[in-house]
Structures are given as structure tokens and as C-alpha cells.
Amino acid sequence: MAAIAQIQAEGLVKDFGGLRAVDVGQFTLNKGEIRAVIGPNGAGKTTFVSLLCGRFPPSAGRIMFGGKDITAMPAHDRVALGIAYTFQITSIFGNLSLYDNVALPTQRRITLSSERSALKQSTMATLERVGLADRAQETASAQSYGHQRLLEVAMGLALAPKVLILDEPTQGLADSEITDFIALIKDVARETTVMLIEHNMQVVMALAEQITVLDGGRILAEGSPDEIRSNKAVQTAYLGG
């Protein structure tokens, strides 16, 4: 089966002041794949995916989604189109219940069948999926760090996105939680394209079909896990840098 491009970027550049944070020549994310973005700290990973989901505008370049130019589209419209982003720093609504946290992205999706029961059903189903259903009425900020990360992922899932972008989702999770997380993402990937920024190589190797290595804002290498493992440039960047 020929790969269909889900997200494409051309000549994407982001400058902060005089600093060039991202300078990605050509980037393609194919439909249905699990892509990992790795690279040392300060490689511009978060900035790069933030450009894709529209948290800020690029300094130059073009972004296409499913063949449509979305470069000038504001972030919230991109979400409506199907690009979901979960934050690196846990960014949940701490004062609200888990239910409300997930109901919010859910209600975006089911505005047409605007019955409360449909909203409730769908929200609870998402919480069930990440294993937080029994805590639905508890306050988000009272949860453990691992549960907050899961809630963050649940909020992304609740949008039923075409592309789910996860920014360091396993950071700070315990080993047992990571195993559950890998299973969850594998399950999600059956219907969604997944792109994750990840430091934990165990997670990367378990999940990724393709890996993009960023260094100094540029794409250093791209390929399958095996290709990346044997790539000289990557080895120097990681081991020598």
C-alpha cells in the first residue's frame, strides 16, 4: 500500500529573535504511522511540533494537512480539522474534575447530537480507555503525576483526532505505567496517526515505525528504528554531543 501523506512541511523555519530554533527542509508524516521525534535537549522538537499544530506561526515555510494548506490557520481550527496536541508540561485544568477535563474536548466533537447523555457516555468511554473512569469526579490536581499524564492523553484522545501529537508523554512515569502506556498507544494507532516526542528509547523502539532525529533545529536523520540505530551521524550527535 502506498503511503498517503497526512502532514507535510516544506521549508519550515522558526526564528526567535535572532535565534533560528527550527529549520526543517522537508518533512512528511504518513497516514497511520507511529512517528517518534527524538533529539538532544534544545534540538527544537517542541518548537517543531508546535508549528505543526499552530501554537505559533512559522517565520517561513508551508504546512499541509491532508493536501490542504494550513500554514495560516489558527490552532483551534487545526484541532477541529483533526490535529491534537498534548503538552509536555502537564497542562490540565487542575481545579476541575477529571470528568470536566475530558468532557470539554468531547463536547467539541459532539455538538450536533447535543444531548447530555451522549456527552456523558463518550466522556466516560474515554476515561475508561485510559483507566481513570472510577476517578471521574475527583479533582484533577489531586491526582498522582502518572494519572495526570494519562488525563492529558485522554484529553487528546477525546478529540478523536486524525493526528495525535504527544510531547514527552512518558516523562516521569513509573515502569509499570510505561508498559500500560505503550499498549494504549498501540491501540490508539490503529485508527490514528501518532507522532510523539520521546526521550525514553525503550518507548521509542517499542512504538515507532519511523523516527525523525532533530539536532540544532534541523533534521539530522530519518528512517526506521534500525536505520537510525546504525546511523553514524546520530551516534556522534548523541554520544559525542
Binding site: C53, V79, F87, L96
Partner: peptide, 17 residues
């Protein structure tokens, strides 16, 4: 309420603040 609590997150859930 979500905007009050965290505007950026609300935007990234697809709402125009």
C-alpha cells in the same frame, strides 16, 4: 471556565478563546 483556568490549553482543545 476552561479559559479562566488555562486559556492556551483550551485553545489546543479546539475552542476559539
Amino acid at each position: 471556565i476552561a479559559i479562566r483556568e488555562n486559556e492556551d490549553r483550551t485553545r489546543m482543545l479546539g475552542f476559539n478563546p
